[in-house]
């Protein structure tokens, strides 16, 4: 079987001794990792960070435990989050909700059609803790299942589901309050 035909789980195991197979992982998942980065920090910086994420993956591959879902994305998003944090420490940007790399609002503003969406998103996410925010966005923006997002964030699946439920409830309540206030 060719490397291109192997599932992510086997590629990650194989990468411990054959790091070049991460090239297959790259071809498979680089667009998704790019979009993860672009949603949070904008497409321009995301272009610069894409290779950095995969270079970090080369170093981290000896510690990877493939997720039961079979996808390498939870692992890659976890690494991408770390790279994003490092980038924001190096080049702080205006408009961050806090010191976690959930969202660079200027970048979000640039890519959203109208300022109204930006305001709604900011209100919804501001109601959440840092950890809840990252979890919600991994699921809603990046398409992970709650258990996959749990791996990316180092949580248990049960804790992730519980936290996600609370986050969704609070974010929706914040939106409702905003609507009823006529903002």
């Amino acid at each position: 079987m060719r490397a291109e035909e192997l599932p992510d789980t086997e590629l990650l195991v194989l990468s411990r001794t054959r790091p070049e197979v991460l090239g297959v992982v790259y071809e498979r998942h680089a667009p998704a990792v790019f979009r993860y980065l672009a949603r949070r920090i904008g497409p321009s910086v995301a272009e610069d960070l894409l290779g950095e994420v995969f270079a970090a993956a080369v170093a981290a591959r000896l510690r990877v435990q493939p997720h039961p879902s079979g996808s390498a994305l939870p692992w890659l998003y976890g690494i991408a989050g770390n790279v994003l944090r490092s980038q924001l420490r190096r080049s702080p940007v205006q408009g961050l909700l806090d010191d976690t790399p959930a969202v660079d609002w200027d970048a979000v503003d640039d890519r959203l059609d109208a300022g109204a969406r930006r305001q709604e998103l900011q209100v919804a996410l501001a109601a959440l803790t840092k950890a809840e925010r990252e979890l919600l966005l991994l699921v809603a923006w990046d398409g992970l299942t709650p258990t996959e997002a749990a791996q990316a964030l180092g949580l248990t699946p049960v804790a992730a589901r519980s936290r996600l439920h609370r986050a969704r409830t609070r974010a929706q309540a914040a939106l409702d309050e905003m609507t009823s206030a006529g903002l």
């Binding site: 790091p19 070049e20 991460l22 090239g23 790259y26 680089a30 790019f34 272009e47 894409l50 290779g51 950095e52 994420v53 995969f54 270079a55 080369v58 170093a59």
Partner: peptide, 10 residues
């Protein structure tokens, strides 16, 4: 560009 960075790290 990302592919090049990965290749060097690999």
């Amino acid at each position: 560009s990302g592919r090049t960075v990965l290749a060097a790290a690999t």
